[in-house]
């Protein structure tokens, strides 16, 4: 069983939002909405400051609360562990939006719940997700964590990493690398 994952090297990310823009065009995300975004965290006091930048999106959790709460089965786990929404089945009850600790979902103007798909339409053609393919800093990686040879597996094996809000217990599949240490 494949387990698709994204590995993002925060040490390289400059927060340029190219991933956000590429997603908007690739997926025709309507104006005023986004499926991925940039978060910045500032710690410390000037000039001893730490800035951490995250490109964030649906974490395609292995234990996805958005799927278990869906009353119609519209939210489902696709092959490779990708969490998707079947637009036709979705009634727009927004329970999944409430269920996501990352606030990664939103109501599409057409009424259904929408979010990142890991660009499954590209991945199934052998392409990288649009955000990964466009990143000018090459800080984003995508692949199969169940393949021991894959780049993402190698990265999470060899580098320290964290996931977002692990305490929510959702087992996210977007991993953030931190440098050295």
């Amino acid at each position: 069983m494949a387990r698709f994952a994204m590995v993002i090297d925060t040490a390289l990310c400059v927060g340029c939002s190219d991933c956000v823009v590429a997603c908007k065009t690739e997926n025709d995300v309507p104006e005023g909405f986004c499926r991925d975004w940039i978060e910045e965290e500032v710690r410390g006091t000037f000039p001893t400051v730490q800035l951490t930048i995250h490109s964030s999106r649906c974490n395609h959790c292995s234990s996805p609360p958005c799927v278990s709460c869906c009353p119609t089965g519209a939210s489902h786990v696709h092959e490779g562990g990708v969490v998707l929404v079947d637009h036709g089945k979705c009634i727009g009850c927004k329970a999944c939006i409430e269920a996501c600790p990352y606030d990664a979902r939103f109501s599409h103007p057409d009424g259904y719940a929408d979010k990142c798909t890991f660009c499954i339409h590209r991945v199934e053609k052998g392409l990288l997700p649009a955000c990964v393919a466009v990143c000018p800093t090459h800080c984003m990686h995508f692949g199969d964590l169940d393949d021991p040879e894959s780049e993402v597996t190698q990265l999470v094996r060899s580098r320290p990493y964290h996931v977002l809000t692990p305490e929510a217990g959702t087992q996210p599949n977007v991993f953030y690398l931190t440098r050295g240490r």
Partner: peptide
């Protein structure tokens, strides 16, 4: 075939296409 895609292969496939 679908599940066997690794990141390296993905990138390579992306590039060749």
């Amino acid at each position: 075939q679908f599940l066997g895609i690794g990141a390296g292969a993905l990138a390579a496939a992306g590039l060749t296409s």
